[in-house]
């Protein structure tokens, strides 16, 4: 048992996957960094991506398998698809999910559809590792989550771990998975840590997790929102309200059973999602619940999300944009009296 940050847990999962399977490769911009001049060569492997997550892989496994790319996302995403179809297991890094736009076609129309459209003969075992999330004062083009953009596409799997344990276990599975997986890492969670067993087994995709048991209200929390849900639950416990926190962990496939089970128990549901509200995970999960658990509900489902705006830069506005512990507490109190 070791205490690990999310960042190190992801690095561990990458190293382990590289060691276990020689077909695993990694491509992305400055995932090593330091590709230098002929005349003056600075430190190689100087970056490991902007958050240092992949640092050391180039040194350990070499430039053939750990490839820095140019700023050509459509190119190396497309390349990952072809490489995956013909036997490799590529992992590509989309530095920020906000850059999805420049290589969305590759995921939406090729990676996602190759298997189905060509008669089920092919598979595309690739992973897109990408960084999501607000709260970094990074402005409108470096702060989105966009979970539902990928979740919407049949053929893609979508994973978004909250803690280091899940990050490692889910990344191990994602790399072994035979379908294209979008693996979303929250920039505000990289330095958070928890216990991670050294021999942690892959965590199957499509299995959610009850982070806290409770009988009064179900809080379904998306990725970083688990932090606020936990804080809210701790506060509410003091006034004898017991919250159950459900972390779906993967959004496609989604562990509907786990969610419904909790809803049946409490009859009161709050969904907390950092994304914009329209056609979001929050609205998807809410609609599933009202369809499948209507008679169990004691009140309408409450969604706590970002507003329908881009992510603003300035701290007071960005803090307002992100769902908060207080909003969760208020919502729970409202439901308590129902």
């Amino acid at each position: 048992m070791t205490i690990k940050t999310v960042k190190d847990a992801i690095n561990d999962a990458l190293v382990q996957s590289f060691e276990e399977d020689k077909n695993v490769i990694l491509m992305g911009e400055d995932i090593a960094g330091g590709k230098g001049r002929e005349q003056y060569q600075g430190t190689q492997d100087a970056w490991g991506g902007p958050f240092g997550v992949t640092q050391g892989l180039y040194t350990k496994f070499g430039g053939e398998r750990v490839r820095d790319t140019t700023i050509a996302e459509a190119g190396f995403f497309g390349a990952a698809i072809g490489a995956a179809m013909t036997g490799l297991r590529p992992i590509v890094e989309l530095m920020y999910v906000d850059f999805a736009g420049v290589c969305f076609d590759q995921m939406m129309n090729q990676a996602a559809k190759v298997r189905y459209m060509f008669g089920g003969k092919q598979k595309v075992p690739m992973v897109v590792r990408t960084v999501v999330g607000a709260g970094f004062r990074a402005g409108s083009e470096h702060s989105q989550t966009l979970y539902s953009l990928y979740t919407h596409i049949p053929g893609l799997k979508v994973v978004a771990p909250y803690d280091a344990y899940d990050a490692k276990g889910l990344l191990l599975s994602s790399i072994k998975d035979d379908d294209p997986v979008i693996f979303m890492e929250h920039k505000r969670l990289y330095m958070t840590s928890c216990e991670v067993p050294d021999d942690l087994k892959p965590i199957p995709l499509g299995k959610g997790r009850i982070r806290r048991e409770g009988s009064d209200v179900t809080i379904i929390a998306i990725q970083r929102m688990n932090l606020f849900a936990e804080e809210a639950a701790n506060e509410l416990e003091k006034i004898n309200i017991n919250c159950e926190i459900v972390d779906p962990r993967t959004y496609s496939p989604l562990d509907e059973e786990l969610i419904f089970h909790s809803v049946k128990k409490t009859g009161k549901v709050i969904i907390v999602d950092e994304s914009n509200p329209k056609c979001s995970l929050a609205s998807e999960i809410s609609s599933l619940i009202s369809e499948k658990c209507f008679s169990d509900l004691k009140a309408g489902v409450i969604k706590i999300t970002a507003p329908h705006t881009p992510v603003p830069f300035s701290p007071p506005m960005e803090d307002f944009y992100i769902p908060s512990t207080k909003k969760i507490i208020d919502a729970v109190k409202k439901l308590k009296d129902v």
Binding site: R137, S140, H142, P312
Partner: peptide, 30 residues
């Protein structure tokens, strides 16, 4: 990040831009 900033605090350093000075935008996407 202040209200009187050139983009009313919504853009930040990466998006400094004033249309009235002929700037179509400062884009964060390469």
């Amino acid at each position: 990040g202040r209200k009187t900033g050139i983009c009313k605090g919504r853009g930040g350093s990466m998006h400094i831009s004033d249309f009235s000075k002929g700037m179509l935008g400062s884009f964060g996407i390469v």
